[in-house]
Design a protein around this nucleic acid. Sequence first.
DNA 1: GCAATAGTGTCTCTGAGACAGTATACA
DNA 2: TGTATACTGTCTCAGAGACACTATTGC
Lengths: 224, 224
Amino acid sequence: MRGNLFAVAVDLVVLTVRADELAVLLVKRAEKPFEGSWALPGGFVGPREDLPDTAARELVELTGRQPDGHLEQLAGYAAPSRDPRGRVLSVGYLALLPDLADPDPVDGRVASWHPIGEANGLAFDHDRIVADGVERARAKLEYTTLAASFCPPEFTVSDLRRVYEAVWRTEIDPRNFQRKVTSTDGFLIPTDTRVTGGRGRPPQLYRRGAAEGLHPPMLREPSR
Amino acid sequence: MRGNLFAVAVDLVVLTVRADELAVLLVKRAEKPFEGSWALPGGFVGPREDLPDTAARELVELTGRQPDGHLEQLAGYAAPSRDPRGRVLSVGYLALLPDLADPDPVDGRVASWHPIGEANGLAFDHDRIVADGVERARAKLEYTTLAASFCPPEFTVSDLRRVYEAVWRTEIDPRNFQRKVTSTDGFLIPTDTRVTGGRGRPPQLYRRGAAEGLHPPMLREPSR
DNA sequence: GCAATAGTGTCTCTGAGACAGTATACA
DNA sequence: TGTATACTGTCTCAGAGACACTATTGC
């Protein structure tokens, strides 16, 4: 078999919405190269692992528990000079999670959330991978129900709307949004509960429905 | 640097529309494993190549000329058992081309077009990669102008409609389709020419415009 | 003339966006 | 009481789909 050999890693773009901003989980590198720089969490693919296995394992190590969010592959990155140690192909994975506390350090690695506007100057080509992940997330909110992956198991329509507003950096009319999402079959399942202690009328709590696609889609920009 | 090593290949899902059917370009394998099976054209990533370089090089070798179509990355595939010779990570690339003649054999490899309905039982995990490519193409026709990549430099509205009908396996009303695509800014640029020798009224010829996105999108399934 | 394809006009229905108005909490 | 948030109703406009009609060719 011809072809030279690569080390293969999986790098995770873990996104959440905190304080009405899209945020990405980064680790500080303790070794060369890029010592001291922020980088995407990631690791090499094990001898008997497939890519999704590695991604899921990394995510569990990072968050300390089986996450309820969404995980999908982004793309492969293999520029010859992307890692000074040699040829490394990295497969980016995109994870969408509800807002968690800052994760505990694992193996001495400290991970913390950074608003995507401040996630620049990362190690390797990770700026690019983050940008691809953010763009994928923005696009998928349009035609899927993935926004709910950013929410805890039970959430209000306003919670969901704030996810869209944070990811797209837009303002959405709460009344039209309410009508749209509650009238889309399979998007939201109402529970019997309402949230008390808030400021105004107590909102209804919903769970994720089974629908994955949005027909018709929810558009970021008006059609004209 | 930890991690075991992989050979890295690029496999091409080259699609076109022939005889009103979506077709994929396949090569017959002359060596083990999967000797005699149909497979996606592909090859290993060179020492100084990035993934898009390898994909473009393979496409030029395959078609014998610089193609005017579209080329984008699909995904990485790295199941431990996908290649009996050892660990091989393959990065799928999707190419959309106008209908060409059957390509000449290159390096003794014979490549030929197969309607996607008959492209089963391929070598390795290539069935899966083809399915991913077809689904990507189907989805992208909805919200981009990529359908024109399946057409020659100059084409009619009917040519373009037959692309949509072949890729989606649907029927589209020619009159509504005409209004939709000709009224979308930047999709089609009219030329001065008309096609003669056809059956009915001679159609206008168009070139691809600069627009890449379709707003609003063209939906496969009606909204309700 | 007829059949076939290209292209326009027009109607209806659905859904998005704007926004008035009602419901129900806390201060 | 006022203010904040949740939710409903209604209007208008744009675009999709259905389809009648005109235009221009080959036979």
